[in-house]
């Protein structure tokens, strides 16, 4: 498939902090890419470089094979992690204002319907609740019918229902063949929405692939977890500590249980589940955080 964006060798330093460290990231047209990583990993910095908002110390960004220029701004939709809205004007006026910036904006009615803004159209921007604000910011990001949207933690602060509505909305945008790049701290969200995920820490991309492939690469069988407090003796040979848990990847649960019991381990807090992105995230970033 065609690459809509290609970033290569991006580096950005803030004083002593190497916020982005040699990031190379290609994005195929029409996919949803999730960037996951702990706080301060460099997710926002990376996507702001790709949006053309920050200039990197090194590296380059191509949009459809060409360096990003003025034209790019008409084709990109952006939702920053934190943005202020103009004060004293209403949601409707703000939407009109932003519509006026683009040659072929979505009709107001469509955007209102897509982002469920009908109830708050005449409300002053300053009086929106956290979730209403997120919906409004998302509306501003897609008002231009962008070819690619960057959403930086779009669901932070949303209630579970609103989060699900947001998932539907992203699905609809994707159905229009818009490429979506989003950052999130919610692994369930990444699992539902993203065709591919990239896991970042310390400014580097640690892994990047389809969620299923990533899981298959790092886990085999079921995942048995026991809280650290329940273990006083030696660790069983098949297990290892990941964050605060003893973790065992087990292809044969009978054998695993026997091993644990033989080791005199208290099974009180034991859990067994199919490994998911959450586990992968902790596996990758938790492990590297400890060094």
């Amino acid at each position: 498939m065609a690459k809509i964006m290609e970033a290569s060798g991006l580096r950005k330093r803030y004083g002593a902090v190497q916020a982005v460290d040699s990031v190379t990231l290609d994005i195929e047209e029409g996919i949803c890419l999730g960037i996951l990583g702990p706080n301060g990993a460099g997710k926002s910095t990376t996507i702001e470089i790709m949006e053309g908002i920050l200039s990197p110390d090194e590296g380059k960004v191509l949009f459809k094979g060409k360096p990003i220029g003025r034209d790019f701004k008409r084709k990109v939709g952006i939702q920053f992690q934190t943005t202020a809205l103009p004060e004293f004007i209403t949601v409707k006026e703000t939407l009109r204002l932003f519509s006026s910036f683009y040659p072929d904006p979505r009709p107001l009615g469509q955007i209102v319907e897509l982002c469920s803004l009908a109830d708050i159209l005449d409300r002053d921007n300053r009086k929106l609740s956290g979730g209403q604000r997120q919906r409004m910011l998302l509306a501003l990001a897609i008002v231009s019918r962008p070819e690619i949207v960057f959403l930086d933690e779009p669901t932070t602060g949303l209630d579970p229902q609103a989060r699900r509505n947001f998932w539907d909305l992203v699905a609809r945008i994707k159905a229009e063949r818009t490429t979506v790049v989003l950052t999130t701290h919610y692994m369930d969200e990444a699992q539902v929405l993203c065709d591919e995920v990239a896991i970042m820490d310390h400014g580097k991309i640690l892994e990047r692939d389809r969620p299923g492939k990533l899981l298959a690469r790092h886990f085999t069988g079921a995942l048995v977890k026991i809280p650290k407090g329940c273990i006083d003796g030696a660790l069983p040979a098949s297990g290892r500590m990941v964050a605060d848990f003893l973790e065992i990847q087990s292809t044969n649960l009978d054998d695993t249980m026997r091993e644990l019991l033989a080791g005199g381990i208290n099974l009180e807090g034991l859990s067994i589940h199919k490994p998911d992105l959450e586990d992968l995230f902790i596996e990758l970033t938790g492990a590297s955080l400890r060094n």
């Binding site: 003025r70 990109v76 920053f80 943005t83 501003l140």
Partner: peptide
């Protein structure tokens, strides 16, 4: 004030 609270950053992301 727009610059401080990020309204300008948001506008920078548009074709304005």
């Amino acid at each position: 004030r727009y610059r401080k609270n990020g309204v300008l950053k948001r506008l920078k992301a548009t074709p304005v």
